[in-house]
């Protein structure tokens, strides 16, 4: 594939055509913050955003997703129709998170509901232009990416570099005739942007290499930090909801007014919520906040790693921002464990 270049003006026109030709979700301003939403006009796209409130995960694993139709005769049928769509403006750390989700949902018992959506999605990534207050992607090795997307955009002074990696990416590029080949000088500029981002996207500095986290956690089961932080936890699950690598779900039946048929849905769930590990009959296997709080960090830093080989934290910093009790900074926790180790 190839790296192309579009002037800022031609870029906006290209996005306008993309929006007319495809179902496009893009980053837009939402009051004083940013969010992915249906994109109507190229001019609304805000690729200079710092971080979105929710990660783009919401289009691949929707908050409420129909899995099956059923009727009262207990006949069940899969729902898998998904129209093609484009997500415009995904930061590198969120691309890494999506690659992790791909692994989870394709491994072992493959999940056709996730994979259908994933197949229909075109991912347009963008190198970060403004660092958010709590990002630490630099520490997690996720400030830049070289795979997992269909197109990667990089803002240069008056233009965008467009790195096209797949046929889906090529298909989008058919909507402009203004693209030129990127020059050696352009690629050097891009490299500089990416090198700078590794340093800039590091508002909290993790003092240990991410791959050391499983071993560090392994030795920190009884560390006082779990209880100390958990005592302030509201068990609200906000850290779960905004996390790009949280994918746990609950399943519910929604019955139609007719009472003859209905839809089985999966809905986002969170391991910090009090009832997450409760079973019928009332026994709760993680009834203390401390158990749930520690579980979340162990799942991110150790359990997922053992199962899939990934550290399930990409350094987006959304949990830090979302936590009303100010106890959800993973870097603070991990540095503390390291200090006391």
């Amino acid at each position: 594939m190839s790296v192309k270049k579009l002037s800022a003006k031609a870029f906006n026109k290209w996005v306008d055509v993309c929006v007319q030709e495809h179902c496009v979700y893009g980053v837009q301003a939402k009051n004083d913050r940013f969010a992915f939403g249906p994109l109507a006009r190229g001019v609304d796209l805000r690729l200079d955003y710092d971080v979105t409130i929710l990660p783009p995960k919401k289009y691949l694993q929707p908050p409420s997703e129909a899995l099956l139709k059923f009727n009262k005769e207990a006949e069940y049928e899969s729902i898998t129709e998904v129209e093609p769509f484009v997500i415009f403006g995904i930061h590198p750390y969120d691309i890494v998170a999506i690659s992790q989700m791909d692994k989870v949902f394709s491994a072992d018992n493959g999940d056709i509901h996730y994979m259908k959506r994933r197949e229909q999605a075109t991912l347009v990534a963008v190198d970060v232009q403004n660092a958010s207050d709590n990002v630490f992607a630099g520490s997690m090795g996720t400030a830049v990416v070289d795979e997992g997307f269909d197109i990667l955009l990089t803002r240069l002074k008056d233009s965008y570099l467009i790195d096209i990696r797949t046929e889906k990416g090529e298909a989008l590029m058919k909507h402009t005739k203004k693209a030129e080949d990127a020059t050696e000088a352009d690629l050097k500029l891009r490299q500089q942007v990416q090198e700078d981002n590794k340093a800039l996207l590091n508002k909290h500095e993790l003092l240990t290499a991410p791959q050391e986290l499983p071993a560090l956690l392994n030795q920190s089961l009884d560390h006082p930090v779990w209880k100390e932080k958990a005592e302030l936890c509201y068990s609200c699950g906000s850290c779960n909801l905004v996390c790009p690598t949280c994918y746990c779900f609950d399943v519910e039946d929604d019955v139609d007014w007719s009472l003859d048929e209905g839809v089985r849905r999966r809905k986002w769930d969170g391991c910090m919520l009090a009832e997450f590990a409760a079973v019928a009959g009332g026994h709760n296997f993680r009834r203390h906040r401390e158990d749930r709080y520690r579980h979340r960090y162990y799942r991110k830093g150790r359990y997922i790693h053992e199962r899939y080989g990934d550290i399930a934290c990409v350094g987006c910093g959304r949990c830090i921002t979302a936590c009303t009790a100010n106890i959800a900074n993973p870097v603070e926790i991990y540095n503390r464990l390291r200090e006391d180790h």
């Binding site: 899995l67 899969s78 394709s106 493959g110 089985r264």
Partner: peptide, 13 residues
Amino acid sequence: PHVCESKSDIYLP
């Protein structure tokens, strides 16, 4: 992207 080997629906009773 990772290819999902299974063509059947793991959630279908």
